[in-house]
Simulated scan of single mutants.
Amino acid sequence: MPQRACQRPVFRFAPSPNGRLHLGHALSACLNFDMAAAAGGRFLLRIEDIDQSRCTPALEQAVLEDLHWLGLDWELPVRRQSDHFDAYRAALDRLAAEGLAYPSFMTRGDIRTWVGAWEDQNRRPWPRDPDGARLYPPVDRQRPESERRALMADGRRHAWRIDMERAIAHPAGPLTFHESGDGQTGLIRAEPARWGDAVLSRSDAPSSYHLSVVVDDALQGITHVVRGLDLFAATDLHRLLQSLLGLPEPAYHHHRLILGADGRKLSKSDGSTSLAALRAEGRTPSDIRVMIGL
Rank of each mutant, 00 (worst) to 15 (best):
A117M: 10
L219T: 03
L266T: 01
L45P: 00
G263W: 06
A169I: 04
L72R: 05
W160S: 05
A14Q: 04
L135E: 02
P57W: 08
R42Q: 05
T176F: 13
D93A: 13
H170S: 10
H254A: 06
R202T: 15
V225P: 11
I288G: 05
A87Q: 12
G196Y: 07
D204C: 07
F11Y: 13
H178K: 11
R128D: 11
L275D: 05
A133G: 09
L95R: 07
D182A: 08
V63T: 13
I292L: 00
N18W: 06
L211I: 12
R46S: 02
V78H: 12
L70P: 11
T185W: 13
L275N: 02
P285F: 00
T273Y: 10
T223A: 01
F33Y: 09
M152R: 13
M106G: 11
R42Y: 04
I288E: 02
Q81Y: 10
R12H: 01
H238I: 08
T185M: 13
A277L: 05
L151C: 09
G109S: 12
V213E: 06
M35K: 08
A91C: 06
R42W: 01
Q7L: 04
K268M: 03
P206W: 09
V63F: 13
G155S: 03
C55R: 07
A101K: 02
P130Q: 04
G282E: 03
G24V: 00
K265P: 00
A233S: 15
P285Q: 01
G116Q: 10
C55L: 04
S28E: 02
R4M: 11
Q220D: 06
D140W: 03
Q81C: 07
M164D: 06
R166Q: 08
A62K: 10
R156F: 12
Q81K: 05
V139I: 04
V225K: 03
G228E: 06
P174I: 06
L187K: 15
G183A: 12
L92D: 04
D120H: 11
Y136Q: 04
R194S: 15
S267F: 00
L151W: 06
H254P: 15
E65S: 15
R123T: 05
L231A: 10
Q184P: 14
R157S: 14
T223V: 00
D230I: 02
S146I: 02
R239H: 09
Y88S: 11
P9I: 00
D154Y: 08
D93E: 14
D51R: 01
W118G: 09
S272Q: 07
W114M: 11
W118P: 12
Y88Q: 07
R157V: 08
L70T: 10
V290E: 14
R94T: 14
